[in-house]
Design a protein around this nucleic acid. Structure first.
Lengths: 211, 211
DNA sequence: CCATGCAGTTAACAACTGTTCTCCGAGATT
DNA sequence: AATCTCGGAGAACAGTTGTTAACTGCATGG
C-alpha cells in the first residue's frame, strides 16, 4: 500500500483536514449543533459548496472529529497502560504518572479535549453515540489491562468493567477540569485528581474484604 | 409580603414560565447555543419581541433555566441528606436509598437532567459557570454533612471536599446515564451506580489506614 | 495526447435569524 | 374618572443560513 497517493487526492485530504481544523477551532466558543456549514468554509477560505465534497452535513463532520480526537486520546491511553502496567511500581507512583500524562495531553490537545467533553452530552445524536462507543471501547482496554494484574484476582467480570469505566470517566472529567481551570490553577486540579485516584485505588484494594 | 401579586404581574410570570418550559422542551434535541429566540416564542404562541420583556437574550434564559433546574435538584439533595444522614444505617442501605432517589428524580425531571448534563460543558459561558457554581455549592453541603459523621474523624478539610465533589459528580453522571439508557435498561445502570458508590465508600473507610 | 473524472467555483433561491421602532389596550395609580 | 405603565403585537430591516444547479480547470488513466 501507500504509493504516495497522487497530488489529486493529496489536495483533497488537505482541504478536508483544513475543514476539520477550522471547525475544531470554531467549536471552542460554541457547540456543534450551532456551528454552521458556511461558517466553517468561510474560515478555511473555500466556497460553501465545497463542503459537500467531504461531508454530508455538519453531523457527519462531527463524527469525523470524534474519530480524530479519540484516536489521539487512544494513543495516549495505550502509552499510559504501557508505562504503568508492569505492576512493579506501587500505587502512588502509578497515580502520579497517570495524572502527569493527562496534564501533558490537555496541554498539547486542548481543542480535542474541549470537543469531547462538550459533545459527549451534546445536542447531536450521532456524535454523542460515536463518543459513547469509543469510550466504552477504552473501558474495555483498561479492563483487559486490569485483568492481568495480581490485584484483580478473584474479581467479577462486571466489577472489573465497572472499575475501568470509573477510571475512564475520571480521566475525561479531569481533562475537562484542567481545561476550565484558571491559568496557574492547573496544579491544584492535578493534586485533586491524584487524591481522587488514590481513593479509587483504596476502594479497589479492599473490594473483596468482606466477602 | 405576598399580597396576591396583581393580575398584571401574574400574567407576566405566566408567559415567562411558558417561555422557560418551551425552551426546556426544545432543548431535548439540540443545545442552548443553537436554540433561537424566535423558535421559543413561536412554540409559546407569542410575538418574538415579547421575549425581550423577560430576558435579555438566550444566554439569560439559559441562566434562569439553571436556577430552576438546580433548585429542584437541590430539594432532592436535601431530602437525600436528611434521609441517609442519621448515621445509623450502614453503607449498603444508604447506597440503595441514594440510587433510588436519583432514579426517581430522573423519572420526574428528565428534561432538567438533560439540560444540566448537556450545558455543564456546553457552548454558553454564562450558563456553564452558573452550573459550576451551583454544583460547587452542592459539594459544600455534602461536605458539611460528611463532616458531622463519625467516619470523617481525622479527615483533612480538602480531602472531605474532594470526596463530596466525587459524590456530586457521580450523582450527575448517574442521572445522565439513566437518561440515555435504553428503555428497560435503567435497572442495569442502577446496579452499576450502586457498585460504584460501594467502591467510593470502601475508599473512604480506608482513607486513613496507612497514615 | 486526449477524453474523462472530479475538487472547487459562481450565482441564485427561499427561509430564517436577532433587533429596532411604533403602536395598542388593559391593568394600575391617583 | 383621567392618567400613566407596561406586556405584548405588528411590520420592517439587513444578514445569515442550507441547498440547488450549472460551470471551470486541472490531474489522471487509457
Amino acid at each position: 500500500m501507500s504509493h504516495t497517493l497522487g497530488i489529486r487526492q493529496a489536495q483533497k485530504q488537505k482541504t478536508r483536514q483544513a475543514l476539520l481544523d477550522a471547525a475544531l477551532q470554531l467549536l471552542e466558543e460554541q457547540s456543534l449543533s450551532s456551528l454552521g456549514l458556511r461558517e466553517v468554509t468561510r474560515a478555511v477560505g473555500v466556497a460553501p459548496t465545497a463542503f459537500y465534497r467531504h461531508f454530508r452535513d455538519m453531523a457527519d463532520l462531527g463524527v469525523a472529529l470524534v474519530e480524530e480526537a479519540l484516536d489521539s486520546l487512544h494513543t495516549t491511553l495505550v502509552a499510559l497502560l504501557a508505562a504503568t502496567g508492569d505492576g512493579k511500581d506501587d500505587g502512588e507512583e502509578r497515580i502520579a504518572a497517570t495524572v502527569e500524562l493527562i496534564v501533558a495531553y490537555v496541554r498539547t490537545h486542548p481543542a480535542h479535549v474541549r470537543f469531547i467533553a462538550r459533545e459527549q452530552h451534546g445536542g447531536v445524536q450521532a456524535v454523542r453515540s460515536a463518543i459513547g462507543d469509543q469510550l466504552a471501547l477504552f473501558a474495555q482496554e483498561v479492563k483487559d489491562q486490569f485483568a492481568g494484574e495480581p490485584d484483580s484476582a478473584g474479581w467479577d467480570e462486571d466489577d472489573l468493567l465497572m472499575l475501568a469505566r470509573m477510571y475512564v470517566d475520571h480521566m475525561v472529567m479531569t481533562a475537562s477540569s484542567l481545561l476550565e481551570a484558571a491559568p496557574g490553577t492547573e496544579q491544584r486540579v492535578a493534586v485533586g485528581a491524584r487524591r481522587q485516584l488514590r481513593l479509587l485505588s483504596l476502594g479497589r484494594h479492599h473490594w473483596l474484604d468482606e466477602r
